[in-house]
Nucleic acid binder design. Structure first.
Lengths: 187, 187
DNA sequence: CCTTCCTATGAAACTATTGACATAGCGCCG
DNA sequence: CGGCGCTATGTCAATAGTTTCATAGGAAGG
């Protein structure tokens, strides 16, 4: 069986938690997994077809009356095994791409007020995202006092959530710092 | 003049600080700017040609004796102006792609010890990167007690460095937290 | 009735990125 | 002298990802 792309593993990760249609997966790509690996339906449908061709997933057509029929995909044993192996296989530290940081590198060229406004705007957006994550965390903690078991999908989702919160907090703090420098500096 | 890709702006950002050959740019793509926007020479050479075709950069051939001749590129007025405008233009918050977080989402499937080892390894790498950044920061602070002026390229580079440190610190902390959960949990 | 939105799947064109291939002269080490 | 690595510039194929187009039926609202 041929190699699976990272996107492929992202799809398997979702299917490991239950059957989903391509459309469902596209929606799940908004939260929480989509915050760290986004894909649109035009990428998802062909990828599902490839995974099926290679034996990692199967599907059955579910007829619906008030809406179009759908194909519901589920993991095969091979798919689950491939996913399990992938989780702990060696991985290079990824190279990051962040256009805002790239812009900061040319900060000395632009208008200072406009730059400050841009960074304040991004600070605001990262804080809004952080608050969204915190609401999810509050919801999880409201259900049980302790963390979910390490072997559970719930813990795994909680771990990604923690990363999301740390990431947004860091982004917001940096944006704030840059904006303060731009606003408070000498004229 | 046609639109410039983000990579194009990355090249302009470097050329705004001084003339460079394509080969020089490829080397600069290792640090510090490359930590937030990497590109290899196979992408850089065609992009430089496109920027020149569109009038944002120009080049002159510099003959060398003990090594191959090179093309040294520099910004045109149009290039500098395009870069200046770009810095403060509206920007969407980028969608993040991080395979390690994606793997965390399927953590419950894999072997716990192997997973812990993977996260400890990444913790180590992020801390090593952090130390590298801190060494650069120490070097900057050693040159002068105060921060460089906000209008200087040095401050801009320092701002990206700050982001780099925050990013690595956050990654390392999260990896450590995940590893601790995996190591300390019930058998 | 008309428009808009949602569900649902897919193809096609375009852009971005990576990795391998290609060339070529110089210096260094064994 | 032979191979390796560095400087230096490029092309090409493959993969990955985004955007747009296409289709189609039901629901909801004006």
């Amino acid at each position: 069986m041929s190699t699976i792309s990272t996107l492929g593993y992202a799809l398997l990760s979702l299917l490991a938690r239950g059957e989903l249609s391509g459309y469902d997966i596209a929606r799940q790509m908004k939260a929480p997994i989509g915050y760290f690996w986004h894909a649109s339906h035009s990428q998802i449908y062909p990828e599902l077809a490839r995974l099926e061709r290679d034996g990692y997933v199967g599907h059955q057509v579910v007829e619906q009356h008030d809406r179009p029929d759908k194909k519901v995909y589920s993991l095969t044993d091979a798919g689950r095994e491939a996913l399990r192996t992938w989780v702990t296989s060696p991985l290079d530290v990824p190279s990051v791409r962040d256009e805002l940081v790239l812009r900061a590198f040319s900060l000395w060229l632009g208008d200072r007020r406009e730059a400050a406004a841009l960074f304040r705007e991004h600070e605001r957006r990262h804080e809004a995202q952080l608050e969204e994550y915190q609401a999810i965390e509050a919801h999880i903690k409201g259900q049980s006092a302790r963390l979910p078991s390490i072997d559970s999908p719930e813990f795994a989702a909680y771990a990604t959530l923690q990363r999301g919160m740390g990431y947004e907090r860091e982004c917001a703090a940096w944006c704030r710092w840059v904006a303060e420098q731009l606003e408070g500096g000498p004229v």
